[in-house]
């Protein structure tokens, strides 16, 4: 049994006609890092919130199909039960600060206090989360005094301290500067290394290509493709869905560099480099052959 099982998930927001999610089925194993791509309004945020139960419990609306996390049905369990297994981090770091705590350390404790975690256990969890997200240095600072990247890492730490099996990140870097994004991506990598299942909706394809195990391509609420980054990003119809492949893929596509012995294109710098070297040695070998033939 997979950790995340989504079956025929359909959802319509109240007072709308169109389905925001249209018959989505996918599974994810424990420890995987799943990327979610698609243009704006493709349903990324709705899908992310469906994994924690905010869809349908917060928004109401029409809901069909099922989302199961570790065997637990999200619709039946409700948000308050689901958050013990799934954590979510939103786009805007500012609105995720509770505003009722004076230090970063206390801010991270907020969720644990409400879950009723014992004090000793709480402090261990907070220390671990601070360490994992590399924000130990700011633990006595006021939450609103942090930079965007630091604040977003604090938001992730707050969720991680609640020890979920899955963490959903809904475009966590879209409102950050390049340095802040880089900090957050490093943090996401260390979560993944810890064995936490990560669902990451993102527009930065280069990052997803490098870190994700699988990519879900959404378009108008439908799941178009769910496969490895190289297969998804090598699709020739990617532009129709408003998604741009990583820069490396686009360059290699333009000059026709494929992956060695495969029909997909490179999606990361390393793969592009490998493909280039393979092509280059093949060319030089063949030209040597030609030259050799001439001297014969």
């Amino acid at each position: 049994m997979s950790l995340i099982e989504v079956e025929h998930l359909k959802y319509r927001y109240p007072a709308t006609e169109k389905l925001a999610l249209n018959d989505i089925s996918l599974t994810a194993e424990a420890g995987e890092l799943i990327g979610i791509v698609g243009k704006n309004t493709a349903g990324k945020t709705t899908f992310c919130q469906a994994l924690v139960g905010l869809v349908p419990h917060f928004y109401k609306g029409a809901y069909g199909g099922s989302v199961r996390i570790g065997g637990m049905d999200v619709k039946e369990s409700g948000v308050d039960e689901t958050i013990r297994k799934v954590g979510i981090v939103f786009q805007n770091p500012f609105t995720q600060v509770t505003g009722s705590k004076l230090t970063v350390y206390e801010e991270i404790a907020f969720g644990l206090e409400h879950l009723g975690i014992a004090r000793q256990d709480m402090m261990e969890r907070i220390d671990h989360a601070l360490h994992l997200l590399d924000i130990e240095a700011y633990k006595d600072r006021a939450p609103f005094d942090l930079s965007g990247g630091q604040m977003q890492r604090m938001a992730i730490a707050s969720v991680i301290a609640m020890r979920p099996q899955v963490i959903v990140l809904d475009e966590p870097t879209s409102q950050l500067d390049p340095q802040g994004s880089e900090e957050v991506f490093r943090a996401i990598q260390s979560l993944s290394r810890e064995g936490i299942t990560v669902i990451l909706a993102e527009h930065k394809m280069e990052k997803l290509a490098a870190y994700a195990d699988r990519i879900a391509l959404l378009h108008e609420g439908m799941l178009i493709d769910y496969d490895t980054p190289s297969r998804v990003f090598s699709r020739s119809d990617l532009a129709e869905y408003g998604v741009e492949a990583p820069i490396y893929t686009r360059v290699c596509q333009a000059i026709g560099f494929r992956m060695l012995d495969m029909d997909t294109y490179p999606v990361t710098l390393e793969e592009a480099q490998a493909a280039y070297e393979a092509q280059h040695s093949a060319i030089s070998a063949s030209s040597q052959e030609e030259q050799g033939g001439r001297y014969d």
């Binding site: 948000v79 958050i83 939103f90 509770t98 206390e106 969720g111 644990l112 409400h114 014992a118």
Partner: peptide, 26 residues
């Protein structure tokens, strides 16, 4: 808008969880 987003964020941090609360500070 901020209030809606903060409501979501509070909810996923267990703000509505029933049962007794614990405290970080003694």
């Amino acid at each position: 808008i901020d209030t809606k987003e903060r409501t979501l964020a509070l909810q996923v941090r267990g703000f509505n969880v029933k049962g007794s609360k614990t405290f970080l500070n003694e």
